[in-house]
Amino acid sequence: MTIEKHDLHHEFPEMADEIHELKTSNAHFAKLFDQYHNVDQQVRRIETGVENTSDEFLEQVKKERLNLKDQLFQMLKAIA
């Protein structure tokens, strides 16, 4: 099974400059970015079998990742 990459640079490659700008100039964005990265890593560990959890927990973590991505995207759109 191929595991897709969901880091922000793969999700929004056209916004690489905006991601960099906000990471360095906006503390709230940087905090959300770090949270997103950590949650994405957790999902990848579960999906690759490094961590074993219930399907319900995996779905919960994926929803958290999606919520963070939505928040980050809204901030990126605001400066694009």
Results as ranks from 00 to 15, higher is better:
43 V>M: 00
72 L>D: 02
28 H>K: 13
79 I>Y: 00
59 E>S: 12
18 E>Q: 15
28 H>P: 00
9 H>M: 13
4 E>Y: 11
76 L>D: 05
77 K>A: 12
10 H>G: 06
71 Q>F: 05
7 D>T: 13
19 I>V: 11
66 L>G: 09
13 P>V: 06
30 A>D: 13
69 K>M: 13
35 Q>C: 04
18 E>L: 04
62 K>T: 04
62 K>E: 15
80 A>T: 09
32 L>A: 03
60 Q>W: 00
49 G>W: 02
13 P>H: 04
3 I>A: 07
43 V>A: 02
69 K>I: 03
28 H>G: 02
16 A>Q: 09
47 E>D: 13
67 N>C: 03
78 A>T: 08
20 H>T: 14
71 Q>G: 06
67 N>T: 13
60 Q>M: 09
15 M>L: 15
11 E>S: 14
57 F>V: 05
7 D>M: 10
40 D>G: 09
26 N>V: 05
76 L>T: 07
41 Q>K: 11
3 I>H: 12
39 V>N: 01
62 K>V: 03
74 Q>Y: 06
63 K>L: 13
46 I>K: 02
40 D>K: 01
45 R>V: 00
61 V>Q: 08
70 D>F: 07
18 E>K: 13
57 F>E: 04
31 K>H: 09
16 A>K: 15
78 A>V: 05
30 A>W: 00
62 K>Q: 15
48 T>N: 12
75 M>N: 02
53 T>C: 07
1 M>N: 11
51 E>C: 00
33 F>Q: 03
9 H>R: 15
17 D>A: 14
65 R>T: 05
22 L>A: 08
50 V>E: 15
38 N>R: 08
27 A>K: 09
4 E>N: 14
